[in-house]
């Protein structure tokens, strides 16, 4: 009987996003959060922890990454550098 696997996300400082740091096994969410504190924040690496059972994570398929992300590839006009401005325009 194995304890479920949890993915751990940590906010390293107030104002920053929670970032995935790794995973761990725990019986329930409370235990997962306490273990995450002990495993991933022994040196004040976090001010907030999220845990989610790994089975609830859905991911894009890496084998289809090429075609899946392809629609964004040829849209260089989405970037400001696409537009040439006359020298007279200073800040834009």
């Amino acid at each position: 009987m194995e304890q479920p696997l949890w993915e751990v996300f940590i906010r390293s400082r107030q104002g920053l996003d929670h970032k995935h740091v790794g995973s761990l096994h725990a019986a329930d969410a409370k235990m997962a959060i306490e273990s995450a504190r002990d495993v991933y924040t022994r040196r004040m690496e976090g001010v907030s922890i999220w845990v989610v059972e790994s089975k609830h994570i859905h991911a894009s398929n890496p084998e289809e990454a090429g075609s899946f992300f392809d629609p964004a590839e040829d849209k260089i006009y989405r970037h400001p550098t696409f537009y040439k401005l006359p020298d007279e325009v200073e800040y834009m």
């Binding site: 194995e2 696997l5 790794g22 995973s23 761990l24 096994h25 002990d38 495993v39 991933y40 022994r42």
Partner: peptide, 25 residues
């Protein structure tokens, strides 16, 4: 503190290995 770190290291590594489809058990 050092021994606790080593426990942590073991856990980071077990989790990395588990992503290769072997269970902790």
């Amino acid at each position: 503190a050092k021994v606790q770190d080593e426990a942590g290291h073991g856990l980071y590594l077990y989790c990395a290995a588990e992503t290769l489809n072997i269970t902790r058990e």
